[in-house]
Design a protein around this nucleic acid. Structure first.
Length: 1133
RNA sequence: GGGCGUGUAGCUCAGUUGGUUAGAGCGCGUCGCUGAUAACGACGAGGUCCCAGAUUCGAGUUCUGGCACGCCCA
């Protein structure tokens, strides 16, 4: 303690957080702290984290900062809690977005252009494009403090990754879960390609299309027709069904003019009558369900030959396959007739209906898809009248034919929005069926639901809401893509028999009999040695590899041309990140399933789904029952992730979507430079629960600094200032452990057990341990928001009560008083634990604090160990229940309330705090706390600047008592009579009831013909200050000020004003905290003169003055105030 | 059109199993503190808890039906 060199150096109280963070980053790099933190947990239980792979061919933006912050805080926390948490980075590298980027770069767009350019060169460009913004991602990740192993990242285009995906697809293929079917896509017929949803969305335009109302005469009653409406007459030749809504009402109406009967939705009869300009007489009304099954004559005879075909339903009954009425929920009465023409080839919804219908038949495949249009958008020979005609050009002649065949009821123009090709804006898109590979996920729907039910979702409603509903309405996964840059679908087909087989690895392929075609890759590699080897399993090289068919002698096996949906890639990452099962068996088994993942809400149908679907199909009990070979993964409970935090959408400054063009958000780099990463992180963690939509506002981020970071820093700075002045040295006699746990301070000089310390020390330690308890409990539940809230309130208590009320203990004259040392030790202990507590949240500030706090031990050799080099190597603090004192917490809360009420009363009475007052009286509702409060009145006296504090429950002269029922207690007991009880208590004399309660222990109240007995717990006492006093009321007490001032008190007030003026002068002339000064006070006022004389010791003590003269001192500063001219000068040191 | 979510102070958001004085931070205003000082404290203004109905002794909280906004899907 007496060392001449201070153990602590005063910390700068104007910290530059961004600069501090840069230094921390350097330190982390140099000391390799992340890997060291893993090494320290070698052999510890794993906390498994999966990184959802971002794509590195776009710039990272603020949304990524949120996900990366959340992904960082829990692994850091768990690591400190004793788990081993490896964080393997990953990159999503395949898919259309990459192709589009490369296309832009090369100035080519359509598939023909890509083919003409050369697929080989194209995918080589793709491979390079993927890493375009890698450096930006690295920089951001590091700068944000996201600890993830970027050097050991998984990459979806790597051969090992692809081979894992292949293995899984072979599993599915061998189990019959991979099949070919039709997918209805938005098709650009002129370009011969399908467009993605995003591209389709670009191209919507208002257009006028012909809209026709067509008669579908019933087979059994040719004079009666369904009236069907469509805006795409060209689809009518491919009609298969007519759909009605089973819950709608339909009417049979008579057309007076023709004598025919028409069926139309009841709600639309009038509309139709108006359109055809003649009255329709309702004959009968029937439910939609009764129309189902009725057969009709198709509008064209394209497929009329099939009209007689009959199939067998699952229940054994026979039914015609085509041209009948079916049920569909999407039918509306918004427009049309309530009866919808179904051409499943040209509408996704229509196609769904076909699939549903197929389900009903025993031999599902007999229900065909009618498609009278070729991929070029022109009619096939199946429509001889229009063969070779572009469908949109056929609308008119088709309508003419309908007119001729008496089928057309009405025709008009209909304006609606319709998609066109975004590159050739004269070309309308059409929905068109393409052959596509599907994963039969529907077979695993129940297993997926069961799996999902066990996942810990945050927020919980995702499970049964958005995600659960999505799973419940699961449809088979359209897996294949007719593109180039993606994982090739590993299915080889026999050129003769059409039979196929799946291949699980490149090696397996090479081992096939008669394999050939590998030279395509070998030649490319020889010509360009810099090509990455992973490309050998990509198009076009892989397409060249063929082998002898096992199905037909002499036939060859050739790969199908498609690649797969890149969502499947990312969904396979739980095993593919390790190349499992081809390698790393132990690693996979250790890291499966994940304990924790987190991504934004848009991943519900993306990564959350793809992971769950693949894992369920491969590893669930149902899957294991289907598998020929055992793959050694036995998982119960949810997989592949146990907990998932679903993050909300991030919005810009204006609450709108973030948009580059609107410039409504700040770039993360700008935030880092101005405020630092901790400010951004703390804003994310503490601002709102992570699943709410987050408004990313510069102002809110900036506010993290004074609210939290700077406030804590100020406490720390305060500590170091006085630790330096007083030479506080925690090392002397200490036997510290490497964590600097308080147990190592036991024998240190001046260290006293907590029980011997003052109440406020025990209070802040109690608050600290309570907070540790809450934070630990919340973080274990993956609830960063409430954990952060608990930390905030601890730092507030520390700064605004503990330090505020303990300041004079730190600047007390005696350097080695026990109380002063208690204060130092207490604050030091609290700072150490707070530093560890905040480490996962604001790792930079925590690291900086730790470096300072550990410094005395790092510099001095002690009997104990060296402290750990980084706070991130420490264990998380554990709450010490022995230090938690809830009664003390409650009492202190009351004390703080009294202080706050006292200040309120002062403000009310216009009495500033510098003016001392003689007395305050505190009126309490009960006496339970009085004893404790009396023992702490020094604190209140000081805080409120009064000479005396008196506590009483007998405050009739100051207050009125009002008794209200304790609703929670009495509610269940008195029920309906509650209002009567409330009224009776309000009407009675509160003071009387109270004294009755105090003397007898209960009160008896007449309520509704009976008397009700109330004990003290059944009532709440409310105090109201009477008029005429300088008083303020709270929930539990009223604080009353004695406002009369004596001359002595006034003079003391003057002295305090003088002190303040002098302190300001000290600062103005640049005094150090410990510099001594001389003071001159010149005044004509006798009152001031006397105030100075009476309070000389006080003034001199507070301002470190060696003497106070009544003449000017020169060489320093001067100020006017309190009717005096004040001069000060620094003493030479 | 369907699903899910959100709606509380000027702004950003809390609000536990229903309990009668609805909170925090920021901003604004007033006052104060001043050996942490670009920090800090107190007080104040500011709320039909989106609307309507229901359940209940009692609803911001539960239920039903609307309205608005957002996301996803059609």
């Amino acid at each position: 303690m007496s060392s001449s060199v201070s153990a602590f150096r005063a910390a700068n109280n104007h910290p530059n957080f961004p600069q501090m963070e840069d230094e921390v980053l350097k330190f982390w790099d140099e000391a390799d702290v992340y890997h060291e933190s893993l090494r320290r947990r070698e052999g510890a239980p794993s906390f498994v984290f999966y990184e959802g792979p971002p794509t590195a061919n776009g710039m990272p933006h603020p949304g990524h900062c949120l996900t990366r912050s959340i992904k960082d805080v829990f692994p850091r926390y768990k690591t400190m809690r004793g788990f081993r948490c490896v964080r393997k980075a990953g990159w999503d590298t395949h898919g259309l977005p990459v192709e589009v980027e490369v296309g832009k770069e090369l100035g080519i767009h359509s598939k023909e252009e890509i083919e003409a350019f050369g697929v080989e060169s194209f995918i080589q460009h793709c491979e390079r494009s993927v890493w375009r913004y890698m450096q930006a991602w690295r920089t951001l990740t590091r700068r944000l403090g996201f600890w993830v192993d970027l050097d050991d990242a998984y990459v979806t285009y790597h051969q090992s990754y692809i081979e894992s995906v292949w293995w899984s697809l072979k599993q599915l293929y061998d189990r019959g879960l991979l099949y070919q079917g039709h997918k209805i896509v938005w098709w650009w017929a002129q370009g011969g390609t399908a467009l993605s949803a995003g591209e389709v969305g670009e191209g919507y335009r208002e257009v006028a299309d012909p809209s026709v109302y067509v008669r579908f005469p019933l087979i059994d009653r040719p004079n009666r027709s369904l009236v069907v409406w469509t805006t795409t007459p060209w689809t009518l030749p491919s009609n298969q069904f007519a759909a009605v809504h089973p819950e709608l009402q339909y009417s049979v109406v008579a057309d007076q003019e023709t004598g025919e009967e028409l069926i139309v939705a009841t709600a639309l009869v009038d509309t139709l009558a108006h359109k055809i300009k003649r009255p329709l007489e309702t004959l009968e009304t029937i439910d939609g369900t009764r129309l189902i099954g009725l057969r009709y004559q198709p509008p064209f005879d394209t497929y009329a030959a099939r009209a007689g075909e009959i199939g067998t339903l699952a229940d054994g009954t026979a039914q015609h396959r085509y041209f009948r009425v079916v049920a569909a929920d999407f039918v509306t009465i918004d427009s049309g007739t309530g009866i919808v023409h179904m051409a499943p080839a040209f509408g996704e919804a229509d196609h769904e209906v076909l699939l549903q219908e197929r389900q009903r038949f025993i031999d599902q495949h007999t229900l065909e898809l009618f498609c009278a249009v070729g991929p070029d958008g022109k009619f096939t020979h199946e429509v001889p009248d229009h063969a070779g005609v572009w469908v949109k050009d056929a609308d008119k002649p088709l309508i003419r034919q309908l007119k001729e065949s008496q089928r057309l009821l009405h025709q008009e123009q209909y304006v609606h929005s319709y998609p066109f090709c975004w590159r050739a804006d004269q070309d309308p898109l059409i929905q068109y069926p393409r052959r596509s590979w599907f994963v039969r996920t529907t077979e695993y729907r129940d297993a997926m639901l069961a799996n999902n039910a066990q996942i810990g979702w945050q927020p919980e409603h995702i499970r049964d809401g958005r995600f659960g509903n999505f799973l419940a309405s699961n449809v088979d996964w359209a897996l294949s893509r007719e593109r180039y840059w993606g994982t090739p679908l590993p299915i080889w087909i026999c050129q003769e028999t059409g039979k196929g087989e799946a291949v699980a690895s490149y090696a397996e392929l090479l081992a096939k009999p008669g394999v050939s075609g590998t030279e395509a890759w070998e030649q490319a590699k020889a010509a360009m040695p810099e090509l990455v080897d992973d490309l050998r399993v990509h198009k076009p090289y892989i397409d060249e590899v063929t082998y002898d068919s096992p199905f037909a002698p002499g036939a060859r096996m050739r790969r199908v041309s498609e690649v797969i949906d890149c969502w499947y890639d990312s969904g396979a990452m739980p095993f593919a990140q390790f190349g499992w099962p081809h390698q790393n068996d132990a690693q996979f088994k250790d890291q499966f399933p994940a304990d924790f993942i987190s991504e934004a809400l848009d991943q519900t149908r993306g990564w959350f789904y793809s992971q769950l679907a693949i894992s369920t199909m491969l590893f669930s009990e149902q899957a294991r029952a289907q598998q020929a070979e055992e793959h050694g993964v036995q998982v119960d409970g949810p997989h592949p992730f146990r907990n998932c935090i679903v993050l909300g959408l991030m919005l810009g400054e204006d609450g709108q979507k973030m948009s580059k063009s609107k410039r409504n958000y700040r770039e993360p780099t700008e935030i880092f430079e101005k405020y630092g990463a901790d400010a951004l992180r703390w804003f994310f963690f503490s601002g709102q629960p992570p699943w709410t939509a987050i408004r990313y506002r510069e102002q809110s981020i900036r506010e993290s600094i004074p609210e939290f970071l700077l406030r804590l820093w100020n406490v720390f700075s305060f500590f170091t200032i006085y630790a330096e002045i007083d030479g506080f040295d925690p090392t002397a006699g200490a036997t510290p452990d490497e964590q600097l746990h308080r147990s190592g301070f036991q024998g240190a000089t001046g260290y006293r057990p907590v029980a011997l310390r003052s109440e406020i020390d025990r209070w802040i330690l109690s608050e600290l341990n309570r907070t540790i308890e809450i934070v630990t409990q919340r973080m274990d539940a993956l609830d960063n928001y409430n954990a952060a809230a608990a930390i905030t309130s601890l730092v507030d208590a520390l700064s605004n009560w503990y330090v505020r009320r303990s300041r004079d203990r730190f600047w007390a004259g005696e350097k080695e008083s026990a109380d002063k040392l208690d204060a130092f030790w207490t604050l030091y202990e609290v700072l150490l634990d707070v530093t560890k507590l905040i480490a996962p949240f604001t790792p930079f500030l925590a690291e900086t604090l730790w470096q300072h706090l550990r410094e005395p031990f790092a510099n001095h050799s002690t009997d104990g160990n060296q402290p750990l080099a980084s706070v991130h190597l420490c264990d998380y603090p554990e709450a010490d229940p022995a230090l938690i004192d809830t009664a003390l917490s409650d009492s202190m809360r009351l004390l703080r309330e009294i202080a706050s009420l006292g200040r309120a009363a002062r403000a009310e009475a216009n009495l500033k705090v510098r003016q001392p007052l003689a007395k305050v009286e505190v009126v309490l509702a009960n006496d339970s706390e009085i004893k404790w409060l009396e023992s702490h009145d020094a604190l209140v006296r000081d805080e409120l600047n009064v000479k005396e504090v008196a506590y009483t429950t007998q405050g009739d002269q100051y207050v009125q008592y009002k008794i209200v029922p304790n609703f929670k207690r009495l509610g269940p007991r008195v029920g309906k009579n509650m209002p009567a009880v409330k009224a009776a208590l309000a009407d009675a004399d509160g003071g009387k009831l109270l004294s009755e309660m105090q003397s007898v222990g209960k009160i008896v109240l007449p309520v509704a013909d009976q008397s009700l007995e109330l004990t003290a717990e059944d009532i709440d006492i409310r105090l109201t200050a009477r008029e005429g006093w300088a008083a303020a009321q709270g929930r539990q007490c009223v604080v009353v000020l004695a406002t009369e001032l004596t001359d002595e008190l006034i003079r003391e007030g003057i002295a305090k004003d003088l002190i303040r003026t002098i302190q300001n002068l000290r600062k103005e002339i640049g005094c150090q905290y410990t510099d001594r000064i001389r003071i001159g006070i010149q005044t004509d006022s006798d009152q001031v003169k006397q105030a100075v004389i009476e309070n000389q010791t006080l003034i001199a003590g507070e301002t470190l003055a060696t003497e106070i003269l009544d003449a000017a001192v020169s060489g320093g500063g001067q100020a006017q105030g309190e009717d005096a001219v004040i001069t000060i000068a620094a003493e030479p040191s």
